[in-house]
Amino acid sequence: MTTMTAASLPPAFVGRVLDNVARVLVGKNDVTALALAGILAGGHILLEDAPGTGKTMLARALAASLGLPFSRVQFTPDLLPSDVTGVSVYRPASGTFEFVPGPIFTGILLADEINRATPKTQSALLEAMGEGQVTESGVTHRLTAPFVVIATQNPVEHEGTYRLPEAQLDRFLLRLSVGYPTLEEEVRMLGRLQSLHPIHTLEAVATPADLLEAQHAVRGVFVAEDLRRYVSGLAARTRQHPLVALGGGPRASLGLQGVAQALAWMEGRAFVTPDDVQRAAPGVLAHRLSLRVEARLQGTPGEAVVGEVLRAEPVPVEAGPPEGGPIKSEPIKAVPDRLSRS
């Protein structure tokens, strides 16, 4: 594979990955793009949806397309933290303990039905997701970058599950819902999957090095000062919302900016627009909101609160026209700030 540059990479790289995933997941380009944006922003994804909607397929297709090593752990109540992170095994021959890495030492870890494991096991992921390392018996083992956790959970069935703690939820950059396909999409899917499942023949269209390079390029996407204020304003409004007990923190703002940068980069832009922020906001903010009892009783989801917040926060656009009607073209008196920056 040729080395990609920041300028040429977005259309080819993004297009190849999205097309590859679309071979498996029919009609879910938007959620696939958001998931890819989350990965490009260096985050972890929580897929929350009913069983059979394609959560696992999305994770596997992304892993295969990006050429990343893939591990899957089925989270169950009896799963132990060491089953995920690894364990030190005593070797009688040498008389020493040897660390046997767990499935977390991979590129993409699919934590299937993460809410079925006990909080202790869920928390075993915290260090790996936050700091990219695993500490076992006092020894820290670095995870190889890129490292992405894609977790799934069923939002309907709560029996025998353990709700993810806020700290764990905050570690997920995006919470996405795959959603049911439309009738037409489902018909197309049936035709495509009639014989061999395409996931088995899916080939990598990128390498981990490409992904790292893309992640680096994403961080270079320009975010205007007032767009940063807009992002911070959205996070602040979630904290002030009457139905929210605990709103989005600075990590939410950072995540929102990162995903917006990734979305802009995927569209071949070198700058973020408010549309990128608005597109990223529900996935980044909704799962971080701790709603009050009233909201739960009313059945108001986090996404609805984020929608209200987006409608309340003014978008930074050109200042309004001066008194006296439309302005006339006038001679330039100074170089705009944006030009002087470059």
Binding site: F222, G268, A270, S342
Partner: peptide, 8 residues
């Protein structure tokens, strides 16, 4: 298009 650099 390359990302504009913010001058430090």
């Amino acid at each position: 298009m390359s990302a504009p650099q913010v001058m430090q």
